[in-house]
Amino acid sequence: MTIGVYAYARTMPFAIGMMGSTRRHYWAGTALWIVVQSAFLSALMGAFLLLEQATGHWFTGARMFDVYALGDGDLGATLLISFAITLACLSVGAGLAAVYLRWGQYGVMAGIAGLLVVILGALALVLGTGMDFMTFFSTNLIAKISGLLIVIAVLANGVSWLVMRKVPVGR
């Protein structure tokens, strides 16, 4: 997430103030960079998974990438979950940085508090319906979690675009 924060907080004033970029172009370029970074890190995770499997788990039987949380040795699942995690982390970090650039530290604290209220309200609403989460996540766990993370990334990028349109350059 820190890299996502730095993507906005450190480069936005320079790009807009010194290089003459528009906010729209800056946001689109940063969003594209986030997707490319996510794809690169996903490919790197896949390459390390294949290397680990080819070497018999690093010649010692020690598992690092061939674990349940990353798809239990399935290359497609590893690529999908690592892409989704990276995309969500970078996007949320960039969204928080945009809020910081617009409203400062108090805006970030208010945003986090508001986000917690929304999450807790959504959880109370879903749990009040009696939905069985264990059944929902029992099949295709990696795909469902990845989809949820990608939705979070899209929402965070939307928030960053809405906030970025009014960010002052001198902050």
Rank of each mutant, 00 (worst) to 15 (best):
V92N: 11
A15C: 09
T139R: 15
L123W: 15
M12G: 06
R102Y: 05
L79G: 02
V151H: 00
V5C: 05
V154H: 00
V99Q: 08
F137A: 07
M131L: 15
T129A: 14
L125M: 12
H25R: 15
M19L: 15
V5M: 08
G73M: 09
V118F: 06
L79Q: 00
G93C: 03
M18Q: 15
A110G: 06
M12V: 09
V118C: 07
L79H: 01
V126T: 13
G158E: 01
V108E: 00
C89W: 09
L41M: 12
V118R: 03
L149P: 00
L155R: 01
K144G: 11
W58S: 05
Y106E: 14
E52F: 03
Y68R: 13
V35S: 01
R171P: 03
A43P: 00
Q37T: 15
R63Q: 13
G121C: 07
G170H: 09
W33H: 09
V92D: 10
I150P: 01
L148Q: 09
G17F: 05
F48L: 15
S38W: 02
A88I: 02
R102A: 09
H25V: 10
G130L: 10
R171A: 00
A9V: 08
S160L: 11
I16Y: 00
Q105T: 14
V151R: 01
L101I: 09
W161V: 05
V159R: 07
G76E: 04
T135L: 15
A113P: 05
L141S: 12
R24D: 12
W103G: 11
I16T: 06
R24A: 13
A156P: 01
R23N: 00
L70G: 02
R10A: 15
L49A: 04
Y100E: 07
G95A: 15
D66G: 05
V159H: 09
V118Q: 05
G73R: 05
T86V: 08
T22Q: 07
G111P: 01
I142E: 07
A113D: 06
G71N: 03
A9H: 07
R165Q: 13
L162G: 03
G121Q: 06
L44Q: 13
D74S: 12
L115C: 10
W103Q: 14
G29T: 03
L50M: 14
G71H: 02
I142H: 05
A31F: 04
L148Y: 10
L96F: 12
W58Y: 11
V36L: 10
F40D: 04
I85T: 03
A39M: 04
V154E: 02
I150F: 04
G170M: 08
Q53K: 13
G76D: 07
A15P: 03
G107H: 08
D132P: 01
R24H: 12
G170I: 02
